[in-house]
């Protein structure tokens, strides 16, 4: 009896640890502010210089409708600016939207020089879905100092529908010990493109750096 109670307690603790309540945010389908600036602010840029001992450095942020806003090519949208690591310090940088349960930020990434002028941008078909992300990967060039993340308004109102397949392992505890049971699962996911949402940056350390 005591063994059963102990197992139940352990099981409950494990399940409680897994049960994170993440609120499901719907896609933000409109954005209309009159106080947007016409030039992105680089002084407050978030640094993407990684900790030296990390092979992959991950930085999560949120692009919010109540934050900084930029009017660019006649379109107003929230934005944020990252300061890129020094040339040669990284193998590459990955930047884009984090996939949320019901929405994904419609990302537009533009690279800027020290004066804030555009050096490089990416066409819509260059953004790729990678596990958990809709992102672009790039190697910062010598003249590229900042990465602007804002919103591509065109996909707003559309959704990204995908079938996700995976396997999971269930550990079954019995009176005779434990065994693992591996099973498959498949789910249809639908996420609306949004003016707001999660932004993720990954900085990959250069190979030669110890």
């Amino acid at each position: 009896m005591r063994t059963k109670l102990l197992l139940l307690a352990v099981t409950s603790a494990m399940l409680a640890g897994c049960a994170t309540t993440v609120p499901i945010q719907p896609a933000t389908l409109s954005f209309d502010r009159a106080d947007c600036v016409s030039t992105p602010e680089t002084v407050t840029a978030v640094s993407l210089t990684p900790d030296k001992d990390k092979k992959i450095w991950v930085l999560d942020s949120q692009l919010s409708a109540s934050g900084q806003c930029l009017e660019r090519n006649g379109v107003s949208a929230p934005y944020m600016v990252f300061a890129l690591p020094d040339d040669g310090r990284t193998k590459m940088v990955e930047l884009g939207a984090g996939l949320e349960l019901a929405r994904v930020l419609s990302p537009r990434v533009v690279l800027l020089d020290a004066e804030g002028a555009e050096t490089r941008s990416f066409t819509r078909d260059q953004y790729m879905f990678r596990p958990g992300l809709l992102s672009v990967q790039f190697v910062p060039q010598e003249n590229e100092r900042y990465a602007l993340v804002t919103v591509d308004p065109e996909p707003i109102g559309q959704s990204h529908d995908t079938i996700v397949a995976g396997t999971s392992v269930t550990t079954i505890y019995t009176g005779f010990g434990a065994s693992n049971w591996r099973s498959g699962h498949e789910a249809m996911m639908s996420r609306g493109f949004s003016y707001e949402g999660a932004v993720r940056a990954l900085v990959y350390r250069a190979d030669e750096e110890k």
Binding site: K4, L7, L8, V10, T11, M14, L15, C18, I56, K91, M92, P131, V136, Q137, F138, V139, G166, T167, S168, V169, T170, T171, I172, Y173, T174, G175, Y204
Partner: peptide, 22 residues
Amino acid sequence: KSIAALGLLSLGACASPYVGTP
């Protein structure tokens, strides 16, 4: 009676991330 504890593990999450060259 069997007591089952569910621990969902993503096998993909266990693998090292792939690092490409853009």
